[in-house]
Amino acid sequence: MTKIELYNYTGDFAENKDIAKDLRINCIEPNIVNDSVQLDFNNITSATQSFIHALISNVIRINGVDVLDRLYFKNCNDQIKTIINIVVDYVQDGIFIDPEDM
């Protein structure tokens, strides 16, 4: 399992989408194909939806929803859990729902 300590990159407020994108491209995507990845939010007090989106949305889109079985979110407080849930849900909306049906 690949473990990523996000605090080392973001500080206690995870909002920088450029950092999220770099982590996704360089740390998550190369490892999630044949392995599992653990995103550790230890010491992070809050995160924006934009950050979480840039971090994981494309991982789910490219690899399919089953990738969520190999992607672990560790040490998330309730705020961060809620934001992750929002992003994971709407990314799946994008996969399962035809825009014409909206």
Binding site: R24, Q49, S50, S57, V87, Y90, D93
Partner: peptide, 13 residues
């Protein structure tokens, strides 16, 4: 126009 935005933008801010 995709639901959920692009890899970088979700359109939720």
């Amino acid at each position: 126009k995709k639901i959920g935005g692009t890899e970088y933008n979700a359109g939720a801010g």
